[in-house]
Design a protein around this nucleic acid. Structure first.
Lengths: 109, 109
DNA sequence: ACAATATTTCTATATTTATGGAAATATAGA
DNA sequence: TCTATATTTCCATAAATATAGAAATATTGT
């Protein structure tokens, strides 16, 4: 992943409503939740919610699919994993480092 | 960590110059780099760089200390770890989940 | 086709954020 | 103290982002 893609993902998450939406979907699991349920849970007006869902979709952090009359949104776990990998990549120039979980968590390449 | 703190950290990283600065510092390790060297490496004008360093500092993602005539900035690995933990917390409602590294990486509580 | 419900687009406005030159403020060596 | 170097603050401007009501656009059951 390059910096620009990472910035897109981070920007999507760097907003209170969107971060809450995303975390709600991460916790909801793979089936996801309908837009209406999300708005109801988080008390966000429909048009505002739609704006934020579009941002998250555009960044590729969430997926959507129509189910009967509802649109179900779900977290894209792979995109999230890629972002986490990017952020921890090359920690300490690849040297072993005892003070940080970042480095301990996986080999940096 | 609560949503607002996480948004502060994410906002700090959600900008191309700042993400590059942070990653440069993550890779530089604990000694860090002087402002001048950062600006030189990334070709960022001094006043712009100072603005971004302040943002990162304010969010707690980097630390600074004066060394002779230079100010050395270094990544705050702990802040980063906290953020990563927050983002992966409660994945799939705590249920085991085979498709995602997020869930596999550590127990979600 | 009609009515009810779900979601998005349009629009205007308010707010926040980024940029970089010029000036101000350290810091330290001579 | 004078001078050179390092970094920050001030400032004006430009650009991007967030908000939510009203209207438009699906979708489905009757």
């Amino acid at each position: 992943m390059e910096t620009k893609s990472a910035v897109l993902l981070l920007s999507s998450l760097a907003q209170e409503a969107r971060l809450e939406i995303f975390r709600l979907l991460v916790q909801a699991g793979h089936e996801g939740l309908s837009a209406g349920v999300i708005g109801e849970s988080l008390q966000i007006p429909a048009s505002t919610l739609s704006f934020h869902l579009k941002e998250l979709s555009h960044a590729g952090l969430i997926n959507s699919k129509q189910v009967t009359r509802f649109i179900y949104y779900s977290a894209n776990y792979d995109a999230m994993n890629d972002l986490l990998a990017f952020l921890t990549k090359n920690c300490c120039g690849g040297n072993p480092c005892t003070t940080s979980e970042i480095c301990k968590s996986k080999e940096s390449v």
